[in-house]
Design a protein around this nucleic acid. Sequence first.
DNA 1: CCGCGACACTTGAAGCGTCAAGTATGTCTG
DNA 2: CAGACATACTTGACGCTTCAAGTGTCGCGG
Lengths: 156, 156
Amino acid sequence: MTRWLDADEQRAWLRLAGVMLKLSPALDSQLQRDSDLTHFDYLCLAMLSDTEGRTLPMSELASRTNASLSRLSHVVSKLERRRWVARTPSPESRRVTLVTLTEEGWDVLVKAAPGHVETVRELVFEGLAPEDVAALERVAGHIVERVEASRLRTTT
Amino acid sequence: MTRWLDADEQRAWLRLAGVMLKLSPALDSQLQRDSDLTHFDYLCLAMLSDTEGRTLPMSELASRTNASLSRLSHVVSKLERRRWVARTPSPESRRVTLVTLTEEGWDVLVKAAPGHVETVRELVFEGLAPEDVAALERVAGHIVERVEASRLRTTT
DNA sequence: CCGCGACACTTGAAGCGTCAAGTATGTCTG
DNA sequence: CAGACATACTTGACGCTTCAAGTGTCGCGG
């Protein structure tokens, strides 16, 4: 027997769907236009940039960017072609390959960051009460946890 | 001068990005597996299904599903090939084309709905306090509004 | 020390979404 | 009432994401 959503949940859900449908393209669009980057490209560069040594194993980068290994592999190939990252075999295990942000990649990120942050502030945080920022963190964290938990349940 | 995000905003933002990156594929995946539908396909059918006459102009459906007309046009073509919706010219204006949910499409939706709603409940609402549901509606609404406002600003 | 899953990726094909451009229709303005 | 501009779509090409399948490596039980 299906437990349907009540009116409050339905409204909340429709708006959350709206966020996924509209915010994501909006961010991609700004980054594409100004820096020839996908939002996901940006995330990869950003994650590498604030890691000691600007280097991470593929799987670690995948998990930090919430992506599948396959998706990441394709994107890293693209970024590598552009000389923004480099792949190197790990000295520790021959299974893992390390991705490193290059100087060139760092420059790209530095150039892209202000416009991107400006956009995020404008589209998300401008006019949002501090208590709502906290609520956003709480709710978004809750959802991410639940999705991860469910993936484990069905994969295993 | 860029106003960077403070620590709270940064955390909230990373998690929201996580939601967009993980929840969206999770929903697509369940619908694809169980009903050969995209989440966006589902939304289109659902929006038509609770409209008087199960019929809407393309542009109205686009706006209700938060999509571009182009995206919608492609998807409606696909749904039309499967006989789940039908296009008809509007009697009122020769510019507008109406999309109607067929009986067959309605059946597909009815079969898909329980699994989808179950998934949404499991991934989003299960264990979420009522006050957080309210907060989610508020924050998501805020973001959608801001994205729409910004589109108007840059398009015009 | 050998097999046999599990892990860390990579690759190719198929489908989705976006962007730019094109068509046809309406509306408004001088 | 002619031209220009806006609206309502459609189409094609290109890049991105996913899914399924494949390769190579590691660890562990017998």
